[in-house]
């Protein structure tokens, strides 16, 4: 194994240039270094002006999403050695405006996330002794979707989000399902108004790239397809049944 590897990092410095450029950095290639370790090496020892987001270094915080050799990846969970002898192309996430270097603007995602009300909604909060109980089967219903870390790799992989920026997107819908399928939640009808729209689930054409990109195996594409029949049934029920029976 060669002992050095080149990272071709996209630089965008709006005060210097209106378009991004690429800058090569040659760094040590160590077996246990992730892409993030490589970027931190550049930041600490080579070029302190390089900007990127990171926090936990262990695939939990979802901050360090970027495009590595064309694929959306978490920089902390992607290893340099897998790309030897290089070079490795590192770009910001696709489908988001770039603020600086590898830092993208995520306000749009955060707005969409809060629009689907990703929290437990109760109509009447009953005072309970201890906690609301849940069986393992009830937990299994939504557990997979609760693994989402909001890293936005799925938005970067989704061509629909790139073409139709109004699309609520994979992670927000998967997280809506995380609460819809929770036995303690009573808010699914509130989420229906946001999800069952042209810019909600019906924009999704099941490309499936979100599921392939997801580092936590959440399967957002599956969540969206599973919600489609539910949305149709709920809409029909609202149309056919008197208010009290819904």
């Amino acid at each position: 194994m060669a002992d050095r590897i080149t990272l071709q990092v996209t630089r965008y410095l709006p005060e210097e240039s209106a378009r991004p450029t690429s800058q090569d950095y040659e760094i040590p290639l160590r077996k246990d270094w992730s892409i993030l370790d490589g970027l931190n090496h550049i930041k600490d020892h080579v070029d302190g002006t390089l900007s990127y987001r990171w926090s936990c270094r262990m695939g939990i915080c979802g901050s360090c999403g970027m495009t590595v050799n064309g694929e959306p990846k978490l920089a902390c969970a992607t290893f340099l050695a897998d790309y030897a002898p290089g070079p490795v192309r590192i770009e910001p996430l696709n489908n988001f405006p770039v603020v600086r270097d590898l830092v993208v603007e995520i306000g749009d995602f955060l707005e969409k996330l809060s629009a689907v009300k990703p929290w437990i909604i109760r109509e009447d909060e009953e005072p309970v002794e201890g906690e609301y109980l849940q069986t393992p089967t009830e937990l299994a219903e939504y557990k997979q979707f609760s693994m989402c870390i909001n890293c936005m790799l799925c938005y970067s992989a989704c061509p629909v989000y790139g073409l139709e920026p109004g699309f609520i997107g994979p992670a927000a819908i998967a997280l809506a399902q995380r609460y819809n399928l929770d036995s303690r939640d009573r808010g699914s009808h509130e989420r229906l108004d946001v999800l069952s729209t042209d810019e909600g689930i019906w924009d999704c054409t099941f490309v499936g790239e979100c599921t392939r990109a997801c580092p936590k195996h959440v399967d957002p594409a599956g969540a969206i397809q599973r919600y489609k029949p539910t949305a149709v049934a709920e809409t029909l029920k609202a149309f056919l049944l008197p208010r009290g029976k819904r």
Partner: peptide
């Protein structure tokens, strides 16, 4: 309030041939 776009942000245009970029997009 969230603003959709600032002049300093860089927003790349999506090419008309985006579906040729990846095999999975082409299959789709």
């Amino acid at each position: 309030e969230h603003v959709d776009f600032y002049a300093r942000w860089y927003k790349p245009r999506i090419s008309r041939l985006w579906w040729l970029r990846r095999r999975s997009y082409l299959v789709f």
